[in-house]
C-alpha cells in the first residue's frame, strides 16, 4: 500500500467511526447497517468463491447457523460477543464436516452440494423453529441502533482485514494456485484440499459472524429467514458486480447493491430484482472482473499516459 491509499483508508475509517455521531436519522443508520452487513457477507463469500474459485451456493447455511446459535446463546443470557464467536465457530464446524466430502466433488457438484445443504437447513429450521424470534421486551426498552452499527462495522472491518492478510500471505498464493489450475497446483506440492478447507473455514466463520451480528440487530424474525437462498445469491451478485476475487470488489459491490436497491425499490418497486438479474448477467457476460475490472483498465491507461 502506498501513502495515498493509507491516507484514504484512514479518512474513510474516521468517517465510518464518526458516522453515527452526526447522523441521527434511523432510516439512514439502518441503511448503513445493511451496507455493512452486505460488505461482510459478500466478502466472506468471496474468500471461497472468489479467492479459491469454489462457487458456494449455500453460504446462507453459515450465515443462518451463525444467527441461530448467537440468538439462542444471547437470549440465554450469554455475552453477545461470546455468543457471536460461538455461532461463527459452529458455522466453521459445519463447513469442515461437509468440506471433505464436498471438495471431493469438483466444480458443479460442489455448487449443487452446498445449495442442497443450505436448503436442507432452511427446511429443517423452518420446521423446528416455527415461531418468530423476538428480542425480549426488557431488552427492547434499551435497544439502540448505534451499538448495532458499530458491531457491523467491526465485523465488516475484521472480514476485510482478514481477507486482505490472507490474500497477501503464503496461503493467498496457494489458494490462487488452486483456483488457477488445481491439477498443476497439486503436482507442485500444494495440497489443494488443505487450502480449500482453509478458505472454506474462514469463509464460513465470517459468514457466521455476520449472521451473529444480524441476530444482535434484528428485532423480530422467523429463524428460517436467515437460511434463505437470497443471502447466498445476493452475496454472489455483489461479489461479481464489484469484482470477484478482489478485496475491494465485494465492498464496492455491496455499497452499489444496497444503494441501487433502495433507489429502485422507491421507483420501480418490484422490478428491482429483475433489474438485478439483468445487471448480473451483463456483468458475467461482459465484465467478468466487475467494476474492479473497469477500474484496472482505467488505471492502466492513466499510467501509460503519465509515462
Amino acid at each position: 500500500m502506498n501513502k495515498i491509499q493509507i491516507t484514504i483508508i484512514v479518512i474513510l475509517l474516521a468517517a465510518l467511526l464518526a458516522f453515527p455521531q452526526f447522523i441521527t436519522s434511523e432510516s439512514v443508520l439502518n441503511l448503513a447497517v445493511y451496507v455493512l452487513l452486505y460488505v461482510s457477507i459478500a466478502s466472506s463469500w468471496n474468500v471461497l468463491g472468489g479467492f479459491a474459485g469454489q462457487t458456494n451456493l449455500g453460504h446462507a447455511a453459515f450465515f443462518g447457523v451463525g444467527a441461530l446459535v448467537t440468538r439462542m446463546l444471547w437470549f440465554a443470557g450469554w455475552n453477545i460477543f461470546a455468543s457471536m464467536v460461538i455461532g461463527a465457530l459452529v458455522a466453521v464446524v459445519l463447513a469442515l464436516i461437509i468440506g471433505v466430502p464436498a471438495f471431493r466433488l469438483r466444480g458443479v457438484y460442489f455448487a449443487i452440494g452446498t445449495l442442497a445443504l443450505s436448503q436442507i437447513l432452511l427446511i429443517t429450521v423452518g420446521n423446528t423453529f416455527s415461531t418468530i424470534s423476538s428480542i425480549p421486551t426488557e431488552d427492547l426498552k434499551v435497544y439502540s441502533l448505534v451499538p448495532r452499527y458499530y458491531m457491523f462495522l467491526g465485523v465488516a472491518l475484521l472480514t476485510i482485514v482478514t481477507a486482505y492478510v490472507l490474500l497477501n500471505s503464503r496461503f493467498g498464493l496457494g489458494i490462487t494456485a488452486v483456483r488457477e489450475e488445481e491439477d498443476a497446483a497439486e503436482s507442485l506440492g500444494v495440497s489443494a484440499l488443505k487450502y480449500k478447507m482453509l478458505a472454506f473455514g474462514i469463509s464460513a466463520f465470517f459468514g457466521g459472524l455476520t449472521g451473529g451480528a444480524f441476530a444482535f440487530y434484528h428485532v423480530g424474525y422467523y429463524p428460517q429467514l436467515t437460511f434463505g437462498p437470497e443471502w447466498t445469491f445476493d452475496s454472489m451478485m455483489m461479489a461479481y458486480i464489484g469484482g470477484v476475487g478482489t478485496i475491494v470488489g465485494p465492498v464496492i459491490g455491496a455499497v452499489f447493491f444496497v444503494v441501487l436497491r433502495e433507489f429502485l425499490a422507491l421507483r420501480f418497486a418490484e422490478f428491482h430484482l429483475i433489474i438485478f438479474g439483468v445487471l448480473f448477467i451483463l456483468v458475467v457476460l461482459f465484465l467478468p472482473d466487475g467494476f474492479m475490472g473497469i477500474w484496472e483498465k482505467i488505471r492502466k491507461r492513466l499510467l501509460r499516459r503519465s509515462k
Partner: peptide
C-alpha cells in the same frame, strides 16, 4: 459450467420476478 450456472441464476431471477409481477 461455472458461467452457465451464473447466467442461469440471473435468468431464473428475471423469470421468477417477472412471473410474480
Amino acid at each position: 459450467i461455472q458461467n452457465t450456472l451464473l447466467i442461469g441464476f440471473g435468468v431464473s431471477l428475471i423469470l421468477q420476478n417477472l412471473a410474480l409481477k
